[in-house]
């Protein structure tokens, strides 16, 4: 594998290992809970970047994958007594398949029309689930405590789930790298730059973007399953929280859309920033405002984000990191 020779590959492996080992070795649960949030953000941002950054389609409703993954997992574990591993895998595959079918339809729309449709899809699913009794309607699904027993009790289960989430994070980053360096990625970039030109050059755009959409659903769905399993419950408002979708866009833009490393850095910084704001009294209510200002500033003054800016002043960095 040529990927093994890329410095970035080992950087990703290293970062993932740090995420896993830091709280584990110090047995620090507070640290773990902070990092789990970062990891989730990184997963959401990195996968969203496959659409926004690589393919050029703004998906406002990417959170729907995360939420559906959570619901499917908790439903399989809670009501059907599946094990966690098989449940999240099935959730990931089903959500991805669903995204493929959905993508065939809504990816015929371009630009603003597509973006609007993705909001519509998320809201429709949220409202549907809120009315869907099998999944507990607006009450959502609660896991019985016994669900953790199979994994050696709640304390141990939470550690296992944490490590799994970190694993999904690492996989997301590797996926971003692998796609970026592949023929598939080249086709996506061509679509992003000019879909009509790409099609004339031979890129099967309808298939490619649908695949990208479907692919960008897989790991977030698994992450959703793990995250809500860890929480022990899932409700529509949290699972399909459009704000989180939007924050994911802010992260992608902050770090630099279309770059491999940008969204991760953006997600990490955003999580830190948000955490800081939450602890400053009086500012905790303002985190959406600050996210909004941040997004606006990036769009107006640095549309390439942090990495875009770095690459501009230091082009050689691009060779190593992209």
């Amino acid at each position: 594998m040529k990927l093994l020779k890329a410095p970035l590959f080992w950087l990703i492996v290293g970062v993932t290992a740090i995420f896993a080992l830091l709280p584990l070795l110090s047995n620090n649960i507070t640290l773990r809970e902070t990092l789990v949030l970062s990891a989730i953000y990184i997963i959401l941002a990195a996968n969203l970047n496959l659409m926004i950054g690589y393919t050029g389609y703004v998906n406002f409703g990417s959170i729907v994958f995360f939420g559906l993954g959570g619901y499917l997992t908790l439903w399989l574990v809670g009501s059907h007594h599946w094990g966690l591993y098989s449940a999240v895998l099935v959730a990931g595959v089903s959500v991805s398949a669903l995204a493929f079918l959905l993508g065939i339809g809504i990816l015929r729309l371009r630009g603003a029309y597509f973006a609007l449709a993705t909001i519509g899809v998320n809201e429709a699913v949220k409202d549907f689930v809120s009315n869907f009794d099998v999944w507990g309607g607006s009450e959502g699904i609660f896991l019985p405590f016994t669900a953790y027993k199979a994994m050696g009790g709640a304390g141990k289960a939470l550690w296992t789930v944490y490590l799994l989430i970190v694993l999904v994070m690492g996989s997301s980053l590797l996926l971003s790298l692998a796609v970026r360096r592949s023929k598939f990625g080249l086709g996506l970039f061509a679509i992003r730059e000019d879909e009509d030109a790409a099609v004339v050059l031979g890129v099967k755009a309808p298939l490619y973007k649908t695949l990208a959409y479907s692919l960008s659903a897989f790991l977030p769905a698994i992450a959703g399953g793990l995250y809500f399993f860890k929480n022990g419950s899932v409700v529509p408002e949290e699972a399909f929280n459009l704000n989180l979708s939007i924050e994911a866009i802010v992260m992608v833009m902050l770090g630099g859309q279309g770059t491999v490393t940008g969204p991760t850095i953006g997600a990490f910084l955003y999580e830190r920033l948000r955490g800081m704001l939450l602890t400053i009294p009086g500012l905790s209510n303002f985190h959406m405002v600050i996210a909004g200002v941040l997004l606006l500033l990036i769009i107006l003054f640095a549309p390439g984000g942090l990495m875009g800016w770095l690459y501009r002043i230091w082009p050689r960095l691009r060779r190593v990191l992209e």
Partner: peptide, 21 residues
Amino acid sequence: PLMTLLATFAVSMIIVGIGTA
């Protein structure tokens, strides 16, 4: 075109955020 979409969304976040506060 996606930039104006995101920019107006940012404005929305700012207004709603301030309103919520």
